[in-house]
Computed example of a mutant assay.
Amino acid sequence: MSERNGTHSGTVNVAILGCGRIARHMAQTLRGMSQDDRYADLIRPYAVATRSDEARAREFADQYGFPHAYGSYADMLADPEIDLVYIATPHALHADQAIACMTAGKNVLVEKSFTANERQAQRVLDVARETGLLCTEAIWTRYMPSRQLILDAIESGAIGTPRQVYANLSYPVSAKARMVDPAMAGGALLDVGVYPINFIAMAFPDARIQRTISSCTLTDRGVDEQFSATFWLDNGVSATIDSSMVSVGSRQGVIQGDNGYLIVENINNPERIDVFDKDHRSVNTIDVPEQITGYEYQVVSAAHAILEGRGECTEMPHTETLRIMRIMDSLREQWGEVYPFEREMASGTEG
């Protein structure tokens, strides 16, 4: 990426930090974008790094067409050609890794949940402000065209005045070690529960929570296995969400008004929006645009922000990242769920 007259122009070189499942999903996306006329001049799949396994990084790079592979994060961050780092590691590692990237002069796209708690998030965003670099959360639904389609359906008046919302996301993923590890900020909330929370926040962007009631089941290691919560919003809407890491859920988002309702199929990656009248008759089906994987929208937004010299993306501004983290902190407080590193910080023993 070159710099002319104080403004950036050219192609954004993207690196991936981590080689897990979600990193592979991003790699597939970047490869697809590099072969798509809409995005080929904007982004370039450039590098991947593991913590300490160069052979694994090289295998990953060869599979997805990345020209550079690094066997340590430090080696990757020393590469001056990298413009944007996508952080694809467990939640508990995001804060330190994002700060290391920005300290090395790299813009960051940080996988959800942004950090393990609001305190960590604020620390990351303080560094973003100090460095002037882009720092944005990779909660992909925030960047998808379906977000505006849902808002348009609500604002069309087809369902009348919204009064109730229900949103679910549940997957049986407790077999994954990080999901049940409190040291990695495991549990359903930060991994899958974050999506129903964001669904409500996107559907009613100007509303704020007035009251919350929630409950959860904790594992024997002290992380939330499944939970439900009801939020009363200041616009008169009550919103109920649930998530689980031990069951298969409907993945639906249902917004109910006084004249009808709409159903979003798969709030994690919306497939369509079905609108019904008060007599439960289908009145409209709204399809979402075809996509490479759905990850491309957040990459495009991050790339444009970098080229325009912005420190955040409009789709997920820093204030919203902090607000969502604050909501999740408040739920864990109700449940008595505290991560080990939070206890260490509170006792002053954190190294």
Rank of each mutant, 00 (worst) to 15 (best):
G260L: 04
V108W: 01
L17Y: 06
G132H: 09
I263M: 03
R24G: 15
D181R: 09
V288N: 11
R208E: 14
N269F: 03
G186Y: 08
V288D: 12
A104C: 05
E337A: 10
I154R: 09
M26T: 02
F66V: 06
M202P: 09
A61Q: 09
G32K: 01
L189I: 15
T293G: 02
D191C: 14
Q226H: 09
H25C: 00
V254M: 01
P67K: 13
R142F: 10
A57V: 12
R142P: 06
A346G: 02
E3F: 10
N168L: 04
R208I: 04
Y171F: 11
D83I: 00
M202Y: 14
R21G: 08
Q298S: 15
P45A: 09
L331R: 00
M144P: 00
K278I: 08
S250G: 08
S243Y: 11
A188E: 11
A98F: 07
G20K: 08
N107Q: 13
E315K: 05
P340K: 00
R21C: 01
Q120R: 05
E290Q: 15
R4L: 09
F60T: 06
H318A: 15
A229Y: 09
I22L: 14
A229L: 07
L125Y: 15
K176S: 04
V165F: 11
A88R: 13
T293F: 02
D41P: 05
S215A: 13
D41G: 13
A138N: 15
Y339C: 03
I159A: 04
D62T: 15
V192C: 14
E290Y: 13
D191K: 14
V192H: 13
G10E: 05
M202C: 12
F114D: 07
R4E: 05
P196R: 11
L84S: 04
S347H: 04
G6T: 02
S301R: 05
V248F: 07
L262W: 04
T29F: 00
R4M: 07
Y295I: 05
E137I: 01
R323I: 01
M328V: 00
D53V: 03
L233I: 10
N266F: 07
K112N: 14
I263W: 02
A74Y: 08
I209H: 12
T212S: 13
I197K: 11
R58F: 08
E59Y: 11
W335L: 06
E137M: 11
G187P: 04
D206G: 06
R310E: 10
T319Q: 12
Y86M: 07
S330C: 04
V180E: 10
N198S: 15
V300Y: 06
S34N: 10
D126Q: 12
R119D: 13
L307H: 07
I324D: 11
G186L: 07
Y86D: 03
S243F: 10
G20P: 12
V85D: 05
A27R: 03
A55P: 04
C19L: 09
P90F: 13
P67R: 11
E315S: 06
T217I: 10
R251V: 02
D62Q: 15
A302H: 07
A61R: 11
R211E: 14
G351P: 05
A128N: 12
A57C: 11
G257C: 01
Y73L: 09
R323T: 05
Y171D: 03
S247A: 12
E155I: 01
E312M: 13
R178P: 00
